[in-house]
């Protein structure tokens, strides 16, 4: 009882501290002027060619952070592949009716089209490589949930998924090195002289759509590996 009161008091004091801290953040944001954000908002479309400013921050101004984020996903997939022994999986132990199987079969092309759309229009609309990659990863996940993990791994073997993930990671770095060849910084886009095109068209914004595609296939393959590893755990 005393221990529980002690923990409760600890949490309440933390809450009071956070209350003061968050109110300070609130006041700070209203009174000061954010020069970096102002620069991104006023110059971002001309400098990067992408009209979605979140994508332009993620893949142009701070693309190095995105590389680190992709590395975290790669590390998680690797850890899970090492944690799980290579055994036969035991399934969820349920069999579905024919409606579920047929519906899954007809749903998969639509999911593929949606994923490709979200990846390709990442610099024009909300979405981008990460979200589209997760939508693409839903295809092997649905296969292994309904038809069983043996069928899913017969269609897309784990080695194939590993190779696809590595292609994504290496392709991202090679696209970054392309800017170094022209004598600029790593992952430079507009400064390196890539054609930016007209803002708002599909083929525009220099390197950003290609970086989106690389991140998309990398995230999709990595999350499929993670989910299948979790399901194969004995």
């Amino acid at each position: 009882m005393v221990k529980k009161l002690y923990k409760l008091g600890l949490v309440v004091s933390l809450g009071m501290f956070l209350f003061v801290l968050f109110s300070d953040i609130h006041n700070l944001d209203r009174t000061s002027k954010n020069y970096l954000s102002e620069h991104y908002i006023s110059e971002g479309v001309q400098e990067t060619g992408a009209i979605n400013l979140v994508t332009s921050v993620l893949y142009d101004y701070r693309a190095f952070d995105t590389l680190g984020e992709a590395t975290v996903l790669l590390t998680a997939a690797t850890i899970l592949a090492f944690l799980v022994p290579v055994t036969k999986a035991d399934m969820l132990g349920t069999t579905f009716t024919i409606i579920v199987y047929q519906a899954t079969k007809y749903l998969i092309p639509f999911i593929a089209v949606l994923g490709v759309y979200v990846i390709m229009f990442g610099h024009l609309s909300p979405g981008g490589g990460f979200v589209g990659g997760v939508v693409m990863a839903l295809i092997p996940i649905l296969l292994s949930l309904t038809y069983g993990i043996d069928f899913s791994e017969y269609k897309l073997t784990p080695n194939t998924k590993k190779v696809v993930e590595d292609i994504g990671a290496i392709g991202f770095i090679l696209l970054g090195l392309l800017a170094v060849l022209t004598g600029n910084n790593f992952l430079a886009n507009g400064q390196a002289g890539f054609p930016l095109g007209n803002a708002g068209e599909l083929i525009s914004a220099g390197l950003i759509p290609y970086l989106n595609v690389m991140i998309g296939i990398k995230v999709g393959a990595g999350l499929a590996i993670i989910f299948n590893s979790l399901m194969k755990e004995q």
Partner: peptide, 18 residues
């Protein structure tokens, strides 16, 4: 402001894998 939204996107993806 677009910068905190980009950071939040990063945080969501890393949180999922963690």
């Amino acid at each position: 402001d677009p910068i905190p939204q980009a950071l939040a996107l990063t945080s969501i993806v890393i949180g999922g894998s963690v």
